[in-house]
């Protein structure tokens, strides 16, 4: 029986599958949650903390990305650990050191009982190649914004089952979409499950999702090569590194505007003015809070942003 390993942010699924376990990204259930967490800053971490601590999600162990991504996870992860769930704290290097990251991955591997299925990373590499094609097709107007997002975001755990996931992505059908405004969505993914569809209905076609793109662009065959690639995970690196990467990707995709999505009480909000002054595109900043369908106040911002793009 494969162990179910919950992850709180990007932990290479290559490594978890290679250890004979199945990853489960706790964030994928949160947009559909009806919970009102008791002691919260960011709703993303507060909800998974409560769900895991109260055993509303059945898992065997938890890996918390406590350094180099979400800053609230360090505390919420400890709450889960104190509730009795075996928990490992994982830290990305700020300076991008692949040697350090390799040592961190070695600890993850030890926590999971060592490598048992070394062929899995190659399988995932092939799936990620398909992910990159899906991303390109959306930018070319061949796939809808929402369908593409839902697939790309699932690459964090590959639906906890490679065969099921392979089948799911094989079912995608191309279509012809008239792209009105080419939008890059940067920051954390929206907590509203209908966000991409709502934005598209209002004339804003998301053709680049920053974080899901990170899920498909990194891979490797073993701990060493996975570390060499994942050390460039932009969210864990200094802002100038991330900005340079974004500048390149946005130019490549001929973007018209940016939506910077952040969460209430999320440190990413502090980055907003830096991103605005370094990314030379019209930018809309949205701050979400609890999960649910996209609120009317946010629809107003989206509509006004479309009008602004049409004025420019």
């Amino acid at each position: 029986m494969q162990k179910k390993i919950a992850i709180t942010a990007l932990v290479p699924p290559e490594l978890i599958y290679a250890c004979g376990c199945k990853p489960f990204d706790v964030n994928n259930v949160i947009p559909f949650s009806k919970k009102y967490p008791r002691n919260k800053l960011c709703a993303w971490t507060a909800i998974w903390q409560e769900m895991l601590s109260k055993r509303e999600i059945k898992i065997d162990s938890l890996i918390v990305v406590a350094g180099g991504d979400c800053h609230n996870a360090l505390v919420d992860g400890q709450k889960v650990a104190m509730s009795g769930i075996p928990t490992h704290f994982f830290f990305y290097p700020f300076d991008g050191s692949s040697e350090y990251l390799e040592s961190q991955f070695q600890k993850v591997s030890d926590f999971l009982g060592g490598i048992k299925a070394p062929e899995k990373p190659e399988e995932i590499m092939e799936l990620k190649k398909i992910g990159l094609q899906i991303d390109k097709k959306r930018a070319a107007g061949k796939l809808t914004s929402g369908d593409t997002f839902r697939i790309l975001i699932s690459f964090s755990d590959l639906a906890s089952d490679l065969d099921t996931f392979r089948e799911t992505i094989s079912l995608i059908r191309e279509t012809d979409i008239k792209i009105n405004n080419r939008i890059a969505l940067i920051g954390v993914p929206p907590i509203y499950p209908d966000f991409h569809d709502v934005a598209q209905s209002l004339g804003l076609d998301v053709i680049f999702d920053e974080l899901p793109f990170e899920f498909i662009r990194h891979s490797g065959r073993d701990i060493q090569t996975i570390a060499r690639d994942y050390c460039n995970y932009t969210f864990a690196r200094p802002l100038d590194f991330r900005i340079k990467f974004l500048q390149k990707e946005l130019k490549k995709r001929n973007v018209d505007g940016i939506i910077h999505y952040t969460q209430f009480s999320c440190h990413h909000m502090l980055e907003d003015d830096i991103l605005r002054s370094n990314l030379d595109y019209p930018m809309l900043t949205i701050q979400g809070d609890l999960p649910g369908n996209t609120p009317e106040q946010i629809k107003l911002r989206l509509e006004a942003f479309r009008e602004a793009l049409e004025r420019s």
């Binding site: 209430f264 019209p282 701050q287 809070d289 106040q297 107003l300 911002r301 602004a308």
Partner: peptide, 18 residues
């Protein structure tokens, strides 16, 4: 219910309604 600040020069706006 909210305050909107619109920077016409930069075609940019922010809304406070939280």
């Amino acid at each position: 219910q909210d305050t909107k600040v619109i920077d016409i020069r930069k075609n940019n706006f922010t809304i406070n309604d939280k």
